[in-house]
Write a protein that binds this DNA or RNA. Structure first.
Length: 589
RNA sequence: GCGCCUGUAGCUCAGUAGGAUAGAGCGUCGGACUUCGAAUCCGCAGGUCGCAGGUUCGAUUCCUGCCAGGCGCACCA
């Protein structure tokens, strides 16, 4: 509402000035395209919206910025459609154009917020976006690092949806390959140990020098297999007890272990407020119903036939020319022994996403996968060319989480399997504080997560600060209704009694909500929203402390009603914003 | 050796498609509860934006080179 409206006014003024002054149209248009950026200045003395547009224009025109800006400002003041919206336009500093909204325009916005639960502006060109995140191997429980990716991916998806995009979320299950077999073996060996039939030689025979999976969950699964006999069946059980590690034994143990772990993962995720539209199994890429080959080979063959030579043979193997995207070296798809690499499966998976019609693919990865970026970009570019459409691959690398307790690092031993799980963190600090803490920082920044601070219910903790602001409004409304104030009493004109400076500042801040959402959606970030909500809560606490809202004096009634209205708007925006972060907005705390 | 991320106040971090006096929370210190929730509010102090060059009217932001921390560099998955 604000940005779009102002952009129109500025564009008209620039075009008008340009035609009067004879500025080259080309310069004007390219500047408008790139330089028409609007920001809400931190200092209110600089107005509500500000644009450095003229600084760019001045370079193209070779004229001093302030003179150009003056000309444009004059044209804006002459624009009849601007009088409703703006009360003040000025040139400031080196050549900024600063605008100030009229109060009626701000009140109109406030009314919209109060009157509806969904007032977010939508993007002008919605995209079909697939957000893939978590995708942790089903070989163990989710840990704190996965949690950060889960919170980020889920909230990003919610924000993109709120901005008007068509969004689908997805978890890619790496349920094929050696890792899964190793998992099965680890559980089998634990099972044997629990049965009192541990055999060091057998361990070496199955795992070689490797240690297998060693977390506590391995013996727990084995214990369940002992108790719930139907899980593996009698035949497999008999073989296992006798130490005959056949193919059926391997398959049964792998299958059961994976199923149990995956259900544990889903459990943690749903507890964390994270849901997926789809779980995509890698296994389904290794087959092709009704055909004699896999979907992997199907896609690799297709790409091999493409002109351009992206897929080529060398040294007895099949390669993908990933160096076109500045990868260090080209990558192998099909090994000289004829089997496919994991990379080939990834190609098939991304090809599948493109084929399903997405034009933006978001991959949320742990930062340790950064070496894969170049090759996946190369793949998606090739797939897009083949499909003859624009497909963007957006890779979000989630930096490391280091767990602290009262400023001291929680030991995360390098010994396999010893780490703090997401479930344990949720037990200790709860869903709201965990999600909020994960989302206060840019995902590109390593995060220190202090368990003690995160669960502290104090002003130390921004979650409660924001939630408290919401609860405060709700409590206020309860008080109001005890005093027989009917909330239906608002009328269109009643907000105009909000004339305090703090009230204007608060409304100004609320007005930025859509801009924040759109900015997050554009840059694929979440933390600007978290910051914004803390700012709104802070502004409301400040306002609340300095101004009495409820009053029993009849003469104060119009102001009281308007202030209640403003409070309701604050609560609505906090609630909406928190819901996008997956954090609850409690009525009382 | 090559690549990616990070380096901003005592601590944890925002900000930067080049632009107005670089911000917040915590911590320190000092204030505010007979009033709608003090889980709140107000104030003070705290900065060579890692270092050195370069481009520019203007650089914390862009370029180059260093330094420090983290993470990666398989015909593994």
């Amino acid at each position: 509402m604000f940005e779009e409206c102002v952009k129109g006014i500025i564009t008209r003024a620039v075009l008008k000035s340009g035609s009067e002054e004879g500025w080259p149209l080309e310069t004007i248009q390219s500047t408008l395209e790139k330089g028409l950026r609007l920001e809400w200045p931190k200092k209110e003395e600089f107005g509500d919206l500000s644009t450095p547009l003229v600084m760019g224009l001045s370079k193209g025109l070779g004229k001093p910025p302030r003179a150009i800006a003056e000309k444009i400002v004059t044209a804006m003041k002459d624009d009849p459609s601007a009088v409703d919206v703006l009360v003040w336009v000025e040139v400031a500093g080196p050549g900024y154009i600063n605008l100030t909204f009229s109060s009626p325009f701000l009140y109109r916005y406030l009314e919209r917020v109060i009157g509806s639960d969904s007032h977010t502006e939508k993007v002008s060109s919605p995209r079909a976006i697939n957000v893939e995140f978590v995708s942790a191997n089903p070989t163990g429980p989710l840990h704190v690092g996965h949690g950060r990716g889960a919170a980020f991916g889920d909230s990003l998806a919610r924000i993109l949806r709120e901005a008007g995009h068509r969004v689908s979320t997805e978890y890619y299950i790496n349920d094929a390959g050696n890792q899964m077999n190793m998992l099965g073996k680890s559980v089998y060996l634990a099972f044997r140990r629990l049965e009192g039939r541990a055999d060091p030689e057998e361990r070496v025979r199955l795992l070689g020098d490797g240690e297998g999976y060693r977390g506590d969950y391995i013996p727990e699964i084995a214990q369940r297999l002992r108790e719930e006999k139907e899980l593996i069946g009698d035949a497999v059980r008999k073989s296992a007890l006798e130490g005959r590690f056949t193919e059926e034994v391997q398959d049964a143990f792998t299958h059961v272990a994976q199923t149990l772990i995956m259900s544990e993962i889903r459990n943690d995720l749903s507890r964390f407020g994270v849901s997926f539209d789809r779980f995509f199994s890698e296994k389904t890429l290794h087959i092709f119903p009704g055909e004699d080959r896999s979907r992997i080979s199907h896609w690799i063959d297709l790409l091999e036939q493409e002109p351009g030579g992206m897929v080529f043979e060398s040294e007895g193997a099949l390669w993908f020319k990933t160096t076109v995207m500045n990868d260090d070296k080209d990558r192998v798809l099909k090994k000289s022994d004829g089997s496919y690499t994991y990379f080939a499966a990834d190609i098939a998976y991304h090809a599948d996403k493109v084929e399903r019609g997405f034009d933006t693919l978001v991959d949320v990865w742990g930062a340790d996968h950064h070496g894969y970026q170049a090759r996946m970009q190369a793949v998606v570019r090739t797939l897009a060319e083949r499909a003859k459409k624009n497909v963007d691959l957006r890779i979000c690398l989630i930096q490391l989480v280091s767990l602290m307790r009262n400023g001291k690092a929680v030991s995360m031993s390098t010994r396999a399997g010893e780490y703090v799980t997401l479930g344990e963190v949720l037990d200790e600090v709860g869903v709201d504080a965990t999600r909020f803490s994960y989302l206060t920082r840019s995902h590109e920044s390593p995060l220190e997560f202090d368990l003690a601070k995160a669960k502290e219910r104090s002003m130390d903790n921004p979650v409660f600060y924001v939630q408290y602001a919401h609860a405060r409004v709700k409590s206020l409304l309860a008080q109001a209704s005890l005093r027989n104030v009917a909330l239906e009493e608002f009328s269109a004109g009643s907000l105009s009694v909000l004339s305090e400076q703090t009230e204007r500042s608060l409304i100004r801040l609320l007005a930025q909500f859509s801009g924040v959402i759109l900015r997050c959606a554009e840059s694929f970030e979440v933390h600007p929203l978290t910051d914004y909500l803390a700012a709104v809560a802070g502004a409301y606490h400040h306002y609340y402390f300095h101004h009495r809202i409820l009053s029993s004096e009849e003469k104060d009634r119009p102001v009281m009603l308007a202030r209640i209205g403003l409070s309701i708007a604050v609560a609505k925006i906090l609630k909406k914003g928190l819901s996008l972060l997956g954090v609850s907005a409690p009525d009382s705390m």
